[in-house]
Amino acid sequence: MLLAGDIGGTKTQLAVFSLAEGPRRPVAEAIFPSAEYTDLADMVREFIARTNLPVEYACFDVAGPVIGGRAQLTNLPWIVDSAALAAELNLRRVWLLNDLQATAYAVPQLTPADLETLNKGEPAEYGAIAVIAPGTGLGEAFLVWTGSSYMAYASEGGHTDFGPNDEVEIELLRFLLKRYGHAGYERICSGIGIPNIYDFFRDSGRFPESPRIAQALATTDDRTPIIVQAALDPVEPDPLCVAAMEMFVSVLGAEAGNLALKVLATGGVYLGGGIPPRILPLLRGERFMRAFTHKGRFSEMISRIPVHVVLTQAALIGAARYGLERMSSD
């Protein structure tokens, strides 16, 4: 049996899979608070002891680059090493994946029920597929057809230089350069980026800040959920929060289109991460697709690319798929 895990800074999802049931039907699963454990091995031991299942292999996805089977997690003081874990847990093999690479591996397993389609498009058979995922940070990955299956590749494209498309975005760029010295897309299109946009609109004087929202933001460590909720308020949406989220959607659409061009994603673009499912009303509007297709001479071509929002926990499915495929040939 295979143990698969989606390791996050706040929580870690572990599950056991079998070759017979495949990557969509876990035999057992549980969620653990990551920060309460000194390392991944302690958490896994507890889970295996609890399930009492004969696990021989494991595959984990982590936030950050995986180099030589080793990763240092961004939001946890853990260093995860595949060979060391295998020895420590007495497993035959452990594989590590970047979390966006794992999400990408899940894409061929997704069904229409797992997706919200923003642009039906005209998918090309065996065309490359792009995945862009705004969550805490901004992850990007892509898949290419190898002749028998899709192979997923990780990237750190979310840290590439932000390219503004109008005068207001140029001013946002200046604001971010002054604040950080470098302005990558993650500074805008992510959970850590949304407060930057809010601060830009507030500090520029374009929109007055609501005292109620200001008080709520001052008493929390994570301002993003408050900004998102205030923007989507069906009765009285906050104008400053609405402006911030509209800018978020525009820049996300532009960068999703950039990624589609870079990998020629004629097989489709998939929006993963925790934020898109929560802001579907904003993504369904014209703003996202207008920014996505605003590519000059390539606008008509890119308008034919399908765009979907992933509604399920795809990273764990992808880690399970990757591990099961390699386990079957080991």
Rank of each mutant, 00 (worst) to 15 (best):
D6V: 05
P237K: 06
G121Y: 07
A244D: 06
E209Q: 13
R297V: 14
L264H: 15
I279H: 09
A265E: 10
V168M: 06
R206T: 15
F162P: 06
E29F: 08
V16D: 02
R304A: 03
L53K: 00
Q13V: 12
E116S: 09
L14Q: 14
F292V: 09
V251H: 07
G274I: 12
R223S: 05
S250D: 13
A113I: 13
S155H: 07
I279T: 14
F162T: 06
S210Y: 08
L89N: 01
N119G: 13
R223F: 08
G158H: 03
L3V: 06
S328W: 06
V249F: 13
E36F: 02
A230S: 13
S190L: 07
Y150P: 02
T117H: 10
E186T: 05
L2I: 01
A265W: 05
E255Q: 15
L261T: 15
F17Y: 05
A83P: 04
L53T: 01
R25S: 12
D233I: 05
R202E: 14
A319Q: 00
E169L: 03
G158D: 08
E236A: 11
Q101V: 00
G205H: 03
G205I: 04
Y322A: 05
L14K: 07
P77W: 13
D221C: 11
W145V: 07
A30F: 10
V242P: 01
E88G: 06
W95A: 00
V310D: 03
R290K: 15
L115H: 11
V144W: 14
C189P: 04
E286H: 10
T293Y: 15
P77R: 09
G274K: 12
T136F: 15
V55H: 02
P195Q: 04
A4G: 12
Q229Y: 13
R223Y: 03
T220E: 05
A320P: 02
F200T: 12
R179S: 00
H294S: 14
L53A: 01
T312A: 07
E167C: 01
E29D: 14
E209V: 12
L316G: 03
Q101T: 01
R202A: 11
A113E: 11
A84Q: 09
L73F: 00
A30L: 13
G191W: 10
F207C: 03
S34Y: 08
V62W: 08
D81K: 08
F175W: 05
S82N: 00
E300Y: 07
A106S: 11
A243T: 09
A315D: 14
A256R: 10
A183S: 04
T293L: 06
L115K: 08
G22F: 08
S18M: 13
P123E: 11
